[in-house]
Design a protein around this nucleic acid. Structure first.
Length: 563
RNA sequence: UGGGGCGUCGUCAAGCGGUAAGACACAGGAUUUUGGUUCCUGCAUUCGGAGGUUCGAAUCCUCCCGCCCCAGCCA
């Protein structure tokens, strides 16, 4: 885990906290929590919330708890809990000993429910699910009171106890808060707060047959933990009156305050858990950590850094406007971080063989080059140069367009960190006409400086020595969807990008990349930032994931076709 | 349709009655052995619209328009 030292942003939530502190609310205490349900992996949208909650705690010298909101056994599992813990730690945040589970509060929550029954604020309702819906009314018509609304406290207590002990089938009864069936806010029309569900819970097993609903469990969990500011997303705004209603009746002293902000939407991807689960389960991606996924584990495997993600979250801000953040901002944030920290290397993705005719057959020269052009402190490495090298296929064009700076008939280019070479001839495949090999000559005086006669060589291309390079697999990723806002489409799968992954198996990398640490990032010069895949790399045969390409102003000029 | 929320540059987002920050994107230019980095420069006379209050309004008032959320025994 890295220590978070990012500077503090400002937003409307921090304004509220500043004001609370000014009036000494909660005795100047600030306590937040991040409350995921362990039914999926967390994604970049959760990261926004993680940065907000943990960031506020750090800024105000308060605390932020991690609480697993596991009140619905369906779909929840320890695998998800473990992934959430791993991902938040990786992002750079820590909750010390404050790891909590809503399921640890089940007994307390049950007692709270009993209390609510005793104060005539809750009742057992025996309507069927369909009937409950009918009785609820609509946006324009008020609901009707349940015929069970006025059961006696004794009967309610008895029934609720028997719900717990397993006397009834799922759906036979529920516990409801007794509020107002004619409330214009549908959430307040006697909401269900406990249901019978015969489903084993990943932590409590078969101990419980009834489970509290979110609205009941969440606010009380906050209160039990002494949370001061309960930050959640906008869709819970309608639930805030219920949050307050419950807390007012059951909690004395300091009560937590719910504050809502707009969830993150990112262009060209989806962030709803339902849709991400669908991508995983229907195998459109290779798992939750597929490098194309916007999950934290997917981004980690892709090669994103925690710093980049945190900085992104700081850049996008916190407000209440619906938003669709341009994925270009995320890419900017990784480039910014990796440009600073990733050592440079050379790798040829689509090799073209080049023979330097005037270079001696058995000569090998070790060229020392820096690992970072602006940071000498990052050191140097040696790269062998020899008679036969590989260059990138599209760094040669037989009929180059105007302004093309690379190799072509009659042209010269600089080999990065090495000599200037000049095109002499090419060998083509008789049948296909494809260029198979180039023959060039080098200018021996150009290793450490420009040509002595003062001629300009505008192009620089990367290369590897054929004899010394190592084979590598490189995976190029593109956006998962080909429309800006797939999340707004019901049939979002229709817009999956068919070429979101391109696997190149015949790449050649400089020999220094032979045994690299999984998870390490490099800049492959002129191409982009690449990360050693932590799962599929083999000893001496690394697999590289492209994190993000370099900005490419040449591609912009030529129409931006993908490399 | 009842309720709740939101409308400031292409995308985010400051602004809290004193005359529109910043970031990304975009467009130019300089430097460059990465068509990278870095560095300059440009980019809302106007804040969803219309009225009103005021010496002065994105900020206050009124009406209108648009978008999002809520009718799970999900969270």
């Amino acid at each position: 885990m890295t220590e978070v030292t990012d500077s503090n942003p400002t937003d409307f939530i921090r304004d509220i906290i500043d004001n609370d502190l000014r009036i000494n609310k909660n005795n100047g205490r600030v306590a937040t929590r991040f409350p995921p349900e362990p039914n999926g992996y967390i994604h970049i949208g959760h990261a926004k919330s993680v940065c907000l909650n943990f960031g506020i705690a750090a800024q105000y010298k308060g605390t932020c708890n991690l609480r697993l909101d596991d009140t619905d056994p369906a779909g929840e599992s320890m695998e998800y809990v473990e992934s959430i813990i791993r991902d938040i730690h990786w992002l750079g945040f820590d909750w010390q000993d404050r790891l909590y589970y809503a399921s640890d509060y089940f007994e307390k929550l049950y007692q709270f429910a009993v209390e609510l029954i005793k104060s005539c604020n809750a009742y057992v309702c025996s309507l069927s699910p369909d009937e409950i819906r009918e009785y609820r009314g609509t946006f324009t018509e008020p609901g009707k009171d349940s015929p069970y609304r006025n059961r006696s406290v004794e009967e309610n207590l008895d029934l609720f106890q028997r719900m717990r002990s397993g006397e009834f089938a799922d759906g036979d009864h529920v516990l409801r808060a007794k509020i107002d069936m004619s409330s214009p806010n549908i959430v307040m029309r006697d909401p269900v707060i406990y249901r019978i569900k015969r489903e084993p819970h990943y932590r409590t097993g078969t101990k419980w047959i009834i489970y509290p609903m979110y609205d009941f469990a969440h606010c009380l969990s906050d209160a039990l933990e002494g949370i001061t500011h309960s930050i959640c997303t906008l869709e819970f705004e309608n639930n805030r009156p219920l949050y307050d209603w419950i807390v007012e009746r059951l909690i004395t002293g300091n009560r937590p305050q719910q504050i809502e902000f707009a969830r993150l939407n990112l262009s060209y991807t989806v962030l709803s858990k339902r849709r991400l689960i669908e991508l995983v389960e229907k195998r459109y991606v290779k798992g939750w950590d597929d490098p194309r996924m916007p999950t934290v584990s997917g981004m980690r495997r892709r090669g994103y850094t925690p710093e980049a993600i945190r900085n992104f979250c700081a850049q996008i801000g916190v407000a209440k406007n619906d938003n669709l953040i341009d994925v270009a901002l995320l890419e900017y944030c990784v480039r910014e971080d990796l440009n600073e920290h990733a050592p440079r290397a050379m790798c040829v993705l689509r090799p073209l063989r080049v023979v330097i005719d005037n270079y001696p057959e058995n000569q090998v020269e070790q060229i020392e080059c820096s690992s970072h052009p602006q940071k000498p402190e990052m050191g140097t490495r040696k790269i062998p140069f020899s008679r036969v090298i590989y260059i990138e296929r599209d760094d040669f064009m037989e009929n180059p367009p105007k302004k093309y700076h690379r190799l072509g008939p009659g042209r010269e280019v600089r080999l990065r960190n090495a000599y200037v070479i000049k095109f002499e001839s090419m060998i083509k495949d008789d049948k296909t006409g494809e260029v198979m090999e180039l023959h060039c000559s080098l200018d021996p005086a150009t290793l450490n400086g420009p040509p002595v006669d003062g001629r300009k060589v505008p192009g620089v291309i990367h290369w590897v020595s054929a004899e010394h390079c190592i084979p590598a697999e490189v995976r190029l990723y593109d956006r998962l969807f080909n429309i800006e806002n797939p999340g707004s489409e019901e049939n979002f799968l229709k817009y999956l990008n068919p070429i979101s992954l391109e696997i190149l198996t015949k790449c050649y990398a400089e020999h220094n990349l032979k045994n690299v640490e999984p998870g390490r990032q490099f800049q492959f010069e002129r191409l982009g930032y690449f990360c050693v895949d932590a799962k599929d790399s083999k000893e001496g045969k690394p697999v590289f994931n492209r994190v993000v390409s370099l900005r490419d102003s040449w591609a912009k000029i030529t129409g931006g076709e993908k490399k």
